[in-house]
Computed example of a mutant assay.
Amino acid sequence: MFSTVIDVLEIILEDCASSEQKGEAYALLESLQTFEFSFCLHLMKEVLGITNELSQALQRVEQDIINAMSLVRICKMRLQDMRDNKWVDFINSVTLFCEQQKINVPHMDDKWVARGRPRRRAQDITNLYHFRVDIFYTVLDMQLQELNNRFTEANTELLLCIACLNPNNGFNAFNKDKLIRMAQFYPTDFSPFDQTILQNQLDTYIMDMRSDDQFSSLKDIRSLAEKMIQCRKDIVYPVVFRLLELALVLPIATAGVERAFSAMNIIKNWLRNRIDDQWMNDLLLAYVEKDILDSIDNEVIIQLFQNMKSRRYKL
């Protein structure tokens, strides 16, 4: 793929009539055919490869929290292992790639000079320090720090507690101790008396859920909450239902919410900079829930608008 891109740029450089495009092609060739670009390209490929499964797991509509937390731990371990033990293998693979592509490989003990900068003003560091410390270590440390900030021990424990509410596979993930621990995270919502009630209520709740066929086919926490309201189980198990409410409110950074914000950037563009809240909400709803809207027959929508008020012409 890399060689193909280079070939295309060389063709543009030779055959293009526009001097501006030739200049852009030449600048791109100069940038691409450097050791630093190849180094960063390989580093990006390695980091994205390590975090790929975690990214996919976090973006699924039906998130498997337990497996996602396991992937977080594995990603941290792999990134740390790459930082501590994989430098030699990594730099050798980059060097081999550059030799195959006929890209000049700098001597690591030479003084590092930034591209386009005079040598007399260069920092007093070697190429080895620049590539290993300034880039390799820095990128991996940033990734590790981001994972640690996003998934602290408390956050991870809380997410694992929430996963115990999942009704999938006959409430297979249910764990009474973890749900009691979840309640302890919120002393203002669960008093000591509520926590005492919760211990007994959970035993009755899980026996009821597993013995009721209405709850046997549920797949996620949202559908469980809806079914409990329909069957008035939220009144029977008010403390357990409070846990469900918290579980539904907490994951505010799910993929669905991120997609909604992305949709807002698409819908509220510079042509619609004066759009009001209600109109934007309607457009967002139509954009985000387009799968549901696609399932509605156009004739039904036409009849709905036709019946809103009398019209001179039939729609």
Rank of each mutant, 00 (worst) to 15 (best):
M1C: 09
T4P: 09
D7E: 10
V8R: 13
V8T: 13
E10P: 06
D15P: 15
A17T: 14
A25W: 11
Y26I: 10
A27V: 08
T34I: 00
F35L: 05
E36G: 00
S38I: 04
L43D: 03
K45G: 12
L48G: 05
L48T: 07
G49V: 09
N52C: 10
E53P: 01
A57F: 06
A57N: 15
Q59T: 05
R60K: 12
Q63K: 03
I65E: 00
I65M: 01
I66C: 10
A68Q: 11
L71I: 07
L71W: 06
I74T: 08
I74L: 13
C75K: 08
L79K: 06
Q80R: 10
D81E: 15
D84S: 11
D84L: 06
N92T: 05
S93R: 07
L96K: 08
Q101N: 00
K102F: 00
I103N: 00
H107A: 05
D109K: 00
V113R: 13
V113K: 08
R115E: 14
P118S: 09
P118C: 04
R120K: 15
Q123N: 12
Q123K: 06
L128E: 10
Y129L: 06
I135K: 12
F136V: 02
V139D: 01
Q145G: 11
N148K: 00
R150C: 06
L158E: 01
C161N: 14
C161F: 09
I162E: 02
A163F: 03
N166V: 01
N175M: 14
K178H: 10
A183M: 09
Y186N: 01
Y186G: 01
F190A: 05
S191I: 04
P192V: 04
Q195A: 00
N200A: 12
Q201E: 14
L202C: 05
T204C: 02
T204W: 13
Y205K: 04
I206V: 11
D208T: 08
L218Q: 03
L218S: 08
D220E: 09
L224K: 03
K227N: 15
K233N: 08
P238Y: 02
V239I: 05
L244H: 06
E245L: 07
A247I: 03
L248S: 13
I252Y: 13
T254L: 12
A255H: 07
G256M: 12
V257S: 14
R259G: 15
N265V: 14
I266A: 11
I266G: 12
K268T: 12
N269C: 08
W270K: 09
R272A: 03
D276F: 08
N281Q: 13
L284E: 13
L284A: 07
L285C: 14
A286L: 15
A286R: 00
E289H: 13
N298P: 01
I301L: 08
M308A: 10
K309Q: 15
S310Y: 07
Y313V: 14
K314F: 12
K314D: 14
L315V: 00
